[in-house]
Amino acid sequence: MGLFERKDAVEAFRDLLEKERRFILTGNIEGAEGLTREKKRLIGRIATTGADVEALMSLRRKADHNNRLLEASAKGFKAVEDQLRNLTSASVSLNTYGSDGHRSPLGRGGPDVDKKA
């Protein structure tokens, strides 16, 4: 295995990590996930052909950066999911107590709302 094969595999993996980063930043998580098979193939090629330590460290930094982006995206999705769950599971109506001590719905203009001209 020659120098060019090594360089090609490293460059291809670097390009793939950049593509993955763009997918993550645009919210295309499915696109990023779709790169998994190609990433595994390129990692196998790099393992077979070898690469210098500097190139491997550069790839590692890019992969770590993408992982941090994915973790941040997951946190964002989780926060939105929690907010939506809170909104949908909130009580349909809120109640309050009036000066007479009776409970009445808050914010709903139902039949017990006095209408004065």
Results as ranks from 00 to 15, higher is better:
V80E: 08
K62P: 05
K75V: 04
G2W: 09
N28I: 07
G98A: 04
K19M: 01
D52S: 10
E30R: 06
E18D: 15
A51W: 07
R60E: 14
R22K: 10
H102A: 10
S73M: 06
K115N: 13
I43C: 05
G50C: 07
P111V: 10
V53D: 14
A117K: 01
R85D: 15
T36Y: 04
A72R: 01
L69V: 12
L69D: 11
L3A: 15
F13P: 04
V53Y: 09
G76R: 03
A55E: 09
E30C: 03
K62Q: 14
K7N: 14
I43M: 01
E5G: 14
V80W: 02
R103F: 12
I29G: 09
E11L: 06
L17E: 01
S89L: 05
M1T: 15
E54G: 14
E71I: 04
K115H: 04
E38I: 03
L25G: 13
D82N: 05
P105Y: 00
R61E: 14
Y97N: 07
E5I: 07
R85P: 11
R45T: 09
I29A: 14
A79K: 00
L17T: 05
A12D: 03
P111M: 09
I43E: 10
G27Q: 08
K115C: 11
D15I: 03
G109C: 11
A90Q: 07
S58Y: 02
K115G: 10
G44P: 03
V113L: 00
E11G: 10
T26F: 08
A32G: 11
S104Q: 00
S99T: 00
L56D: 03
K40M: 08
T88H: 08
V80D: 14
F23L: 06
G27C: 05
R108D: 15
A79D: 13
A74W: 00
R60Y: 05
V113G: 13
L17Y: 00
R6C: 10
Y97V: 11
R103P: 01
E38H: 06
H102G: 10
L25F: 05
D15K: 01
D100K: 02
L17H: 06
L42A: 04
R60V: 07
D8Q: 11
R37M: 08
L69F: 02
L3D: 15
A51H: 00
L87H: 10
D112R: 01
R41N: 11
E81G: 14
N67A: 14
A79H: 07
E18F: 06
